[in-house]
Amino acid sequence: MAKQGLTATSAFLHWKPVANSNLTVDARETLTMASFAAAKGKKDELNAAVRAAYGVDLPKTPSRVEGQQGVAFVWAGPEQWLAVAERKDGRDLETEFKKTFGPLASVVDQSDGRVVVRISGPRAREVLAKGIPLDLHETAFRPGSAAITHASHIGVILWQIDDKPTYEVALFRSYVDSFAHWLLDSAAEYGVAHA
């Protein structure tokens, strides 16, 4: 009998990578992600546990901090965060956090549910600004800034990495094709061909 089972499939099957002097768009497919929220009355203890394990304080405002051990923490609502790290050597943030934080936090795996797209280059700001209702000007949104909002009506968590500028957008996996459709339309005037 033929072997039955599920095969891991890329969320970016219909994508062609974008790379020109104006813009590069990359799918970040090798991430492990977990969202977590402080247990009732435990936010200070949780922060101390994060500081002990990763050397940073959890962001209290919409922003992103890079901790030790390759983990970045993105503010994802009051007393809630999204953590992102490279998935290498079978690393799994959900398991890691449940072990490290114990009863201080509720941890939920996001590695399969969400994907991260990296948008970088001199025109990245203009391309995103066409669908994101936020002021992305460098005086208002900087490296380290983060926001929960929508991009062309698709719910996203957005953060800025550097001032090239490079942005990353975390969105639900099943919205990737719609997001790409909008993004490539938005980038058409900067020499990006629609897939």
Partner: peptide, 11 residues
């Protein structure tokens, strides 16, 4: 109070 000023369509 958490995110700053946002457009009506987010609410």
């Amino acid at each position: 109070p958490y995110c700053g000023e946002r457009s009506l369509d987010e609410f």
